[in-house]
Nucleic acid binder design. Structure first.
Length: 588
RNA sequence: GCGCCAGUAGCUCAGCUGGAUAGAGCAGCAGCCUUCUAAGCUGCGGGCCAGGGGUUCGAGUCCCUUCUGGCGCGCCA
């Protein structure tokens, strides 16, 4: 609606613009005034044009008002306000028509033209033989929402889970896991059940400590690493088994979190192992490869080190091995050349900002991208802190396991459900606790501007009022409840929406802003824009719910209209929550 | 030393390409359930937008600078 409004205004004012010699007037926009008393939209064209027109803003505004106020198809009122704002009051039938048109659509998100752009989203990036901890939460959850949102707009999306599944840590685990695997297999045991991820992590930690103490152990590990890298079949078999054991547990967490990552998205360091030398050779062709202290490096002017000396990006270590930067460069080649990515998005914590800046710059400077047009975007986010404002740890100083965090959230949610809605069956309570607990954790993360660190607090995220998941879920459940009570099928309900009260009008306008807010998430790569939108939508609905009774409404037309508005609110909330990867309960 | 990010109500945070008296939630106070889930709604109080300069019709938003906090800066990822 807003889009059409703007284009209509542009058309209507075209003559005026031409008179002042303005050809590109895309900067003439409408905004929503802070106070509703100042109209549905306002136009600041007069203020912006005043200089070019050599004319007082208020005088110009009066002229624009004269041009627009005859447009009864659109406005009920148009007036000059303040220093030269033009306040636009939409005619109710405009809102009704636009709304009814939208409500008939099967897809309520505007699709991008011509199939969109191929987008690669790199997120979660877990390590093999390590349990997921809080540090993985943000990348996993934010990346998932970005992928879903971009996809929902019609762009083809490829998800990539850049596993840390290669290199010395893997060699260490293989060494110690080898006898355990052999023993289990010998007696015909179930490998995944008996050799758990926590056990693998334990092994890794012990070897890691041992290698620091004992050079002989370190030498053994190095030997394993060499064999692994040379493609020794026995090593690869062990490597594969360990990876599957490890990922089985990761997928359990992904399912809990409702994150859309599967085995087909696994594309870790091991995947690029045979492309590394080739990548370095490709870089060499650009003439930018320089040897420094035995390592192969690329130096770029814009990067300076501590003492102001040039800072290299090391693409091959002095011992001939490759490090993470080379994997990322190889991945960029693959993602642009083979996957055909036109937009590559990396969701990792803010501490890696410099690293990606360097990788992107090296990729562009050495021409290893399939096309210079490719967009490369790092999506940084802050840390999760504990109540003491330091990175969240357990009392013993360990990383908090994601599995523990989630089960505590579900447990606490259960307590709340039990208290608030004791009438539900045990099965339902568990179901709701799951939905609310997990939703709360995800939403607490997503609803925040990702740039900032945030303090993790169960109490706040489960507070159930304010900008939280349960508040949105509650609005959804209430709508479903009305239809249940009325014996109506909420999915199939159809009626014409009309405006009889302000709350209906506000809610209808709000509903039409859903699609633009999804587009904003995809453009700015900021999930909290959608969260804020949904929160305001739920708040608008709650006000509507309070003031506009449905089942007891005597006017059949208004009753049907309200049910229609509610039904569409439910659809929008459910779709929005789906994009956030949070489920919308029909009862809670 | 250089760089990145942040500093908005007592607390946790919004504030779109600069736009009208800076918005929510929590906490505090006061109302609203014989009627659709009160996990809700309505109202009140609460602010030198870290400080200082500048740009202009207009700055929380842009530029410069100072202060405070977090993070990063050659073979870990």
């Amino acid at each position: 609606m807003k889009k059409r409004l703007i284009s209509h205004i542009h058309q209507r004012l075209a003559e005026l613009f031409t008179r002042f010699g303005i050809e590109d007037y895309s900067f003439i926009d409408v905004q929503v005034p802070p106070d509703k008393a100042n109209g549905d939209f306002s136009l600041n064209a007069a203020l912006k044009l005043a200089k070019a027109a050599k004319c007082a803003p208020q005088k110009l505004a009066a002229e624009i008002v004269a041009l627009l106020e005859t447009e009864k198809d659109w406005f009920s009122r148009v007036e000059v306000a303040g220093p030269g704002f033009i306040n636009l009051y939409l005619a109710n039938h405009v809102i009704e028509n636009s709304f009814n048109e939208l409500a008939e659509q099967t897809v309520i998100i505007d699709q991008v033209p011509s199939g969109g752009e191929k987008t690669v989203v790199d997120y979660s990036s877990v390590n093999i033989a390590k349990q997921m901890h809080v540090g993985h939460l943000r990348s996993t959850v934010i990346g998932d929402v970005l992928a879903r949102s971009i996809e929902a707009l019609g762009h083809p999306v490829v998800r990539q889970n850049h596993l840390g599944d290669w290199g010395l840590p893997m060699a260490m685990v293989i060494w110690k896991a080898e006898p355990e695997i052999a023993a289990i297999e010998e007696r015909g045991g179930d490998l995944t059940a008996e050799l758990t991820l926590p056990r693998l992590e334990e092994l890794y930690k012990s070897v890691s400590a041992e290698c620091k103490e004992n050079p002989a152990s370190a030498a053994v590990c190095h030997d394993y690493l060499v064999r692994l890298q040379q493609g020794d079949q026995a090593m690869l078999d062990l490597w594969h088994k360990i990876t599957r054991i490890s990922m089985a547990e990761v997928y359990r967490i992904y399912r809990l979190l409702d994150v859309k990552l599967a085995e087909e998205n696994e594309c870790g360091e091991s995947f690029y192992r045979d492309m590394l030398a080739d990548t370095v050779a490709e870089i060499n062709k650009s003439g930018k490869l320089v040897e420094s202290q035995g390592a192969q490096c690329v130096f770029l002017d814009e990067f300076k080190g501590k003492d102001g000396s040039p800072l290299p990006v090391i693409v091959q270590k002095s011992d001939g091995g490759f490090n993470y930067g080379t994997f990322d460069l190889a991945a960029l080649r693959y993602r642009t050349a083979t996957l055909g990515g036109q937009r590559i998005i990396y969701v990792t914590d803010a501490r890696q900002a410099l690293h990606f800046k360097q990788i992107f710059a090296v990729a562009r400077a050495t021409g290893i991208l399939a096309s210079p047009e490719v967009k490369l975007e790092h999506v940084p986010f802050g840390s999760i802190l504990g109540e003491d404002n330091k990175p969240l740890k357990t009392r013993s100083g360990e990383n908090v396991k994601l599995a523990d965090l989630l089960s505590e959230a579900v447990e606490r949610a259960y307590q709340v459900v039990n208290e608030k809605n004791p009438g539900l069956s045990e099965e339902q309570k568990r179901q709701v606790a799951q939905t609310v607990g997990i939703g709360a954790v995800k939403y607490a993360d997503l609803s925040q501007n990702r740039n900032n660190d945030y303090v993790f607090s169960f109490d706040r995220m489960l507070a159930l009022n304010g900008n939280t998941a349960p508040y949105l879920q509650y609005a959804h459940a209430r709508i479903c409840s009305i239809f249940r009570r009325a014996g109506l099928n909420i999915e199939e309900f159809k009626a014409v929406a009309v405006i009889s009260q302000d709350e209906e009008r506000d809610l209808m306008i709000r509903l039409m802003e859903f699609s633009p807010s999804v587009a904003a998430v995809a453009n700015e790569l900021r999930p909290h824009i959608l969260c804020n939108y949904l929160y305001e939508l739920a708040a608008s609905f709650s006000a509507f719910y309070d003031k506009c009774p449905m089942l007891s409404c005597e006017d059949e037309k208004i009753k049907a209209s309200r049910l229609m508005i509610s039904s569409f609110t439910r659809r929008t909330l459910a779709k929005g929550l789906e994009l956030l990867g949070i489920s919308a309960p029909r009862e809670m």
